[in-house]
Design a protein around this nucleic acid. Structure first.
Lengths: 125, 125
DNA sequence: CGCCAAGTGATACTAACTTATCGTTAACAC
DNA sequence: GTGTTAACGATAAGTTAGTATCACTTGGCG
């Protein structure tokens, strides 16, 4: 069994997710958490992203053509908005539903994902 | 200016897209086009994917966590179904619409993309 | 306090894709 | 047919993202 230590680094990484509240890339995590832990290394970020994921505290967010981002687990069904201005990803509530109707004949629909693209409120100017 | 030669390889690659009619990965293109051009190289596939894209004949299809696939350009607005059985991607017509309603306040919606996951008719058994 | 293994940071390395290189082949204009 | 050169095939090299290594640090229990 792996004992989990409560390190400054791990705390700072969790804090980044808690305070920003939207999906973060490993780089974004690094930059944000460095406010609390100067000299934080990218390897530590990846290590903690993985272990927080194993703990069920984080979930990966995969978007088209992008490396995975991560967000806090346990949120309800939702989707994402990818801002073309700042490249940040935001959570959006709600879901258009009505997907069964467009699923081709004979296909079994298990799941779906969708992504909105545009400009977030700060980038819309 | 770049003169475009009508090679056996290029013809076979275009044929693969025309006959299969769904988004193809470079590997799928290679395997399919090798039916017509034995010994076709992967570099040639990539070269032609790029030039056919520059010609506006192909368009990239980006799906979450996957390298890009390609499909013939000029189709209308549509989305994709990713089969978890055979890993193939299919085109689906229609669109749930109603996305403005779930876009957060102050955000400018420009575009959207969505992906259905499940089993295609041959994999649904 | 003092031990000691989990955790860290720097960096080397792997893995998966894609592009560049280069000698050879073959479109196609004449 | 002949010549020019775009395109090809094999493979080396480049990219990008993430993982492994290893000496050093530090959390946390006795």
């Amino acid at each position: 069994m792996t004992t989990q230590r409560d390190t400054r680094q791990r705390r700072a990484i969790r804090k980044a997710f808690r305070t920003l509240g939207h999906p973060l890339s490993p780089q974004e995590v690094l930059e944000t958490a460095r406010a609390d832990v100067e000299g934080l290394g990218i390897a530590t970020v990846y290590r903690n992203l993985r272990s927080l994921q194993d703990d069920g505290w984080l979930e990966p967010v995969e978007l088209p053509g992008e490396p995975a981002r991560y967000e806090m687990a346990g949120k309800g069904h939702h989707h994402h908005f990818h801002c073309r201005g700042c490249d940040r990803v935001y959570e959006v509530e709600g879901c258009p539903g009505n997907l069964r109707g467009i699923t081709p004949m004979g296909f079994e629909l298990e799941d779906h994902e969708f992504v909105l693209y545009g400009r977030c409120d700060s980038c819309a100017a």
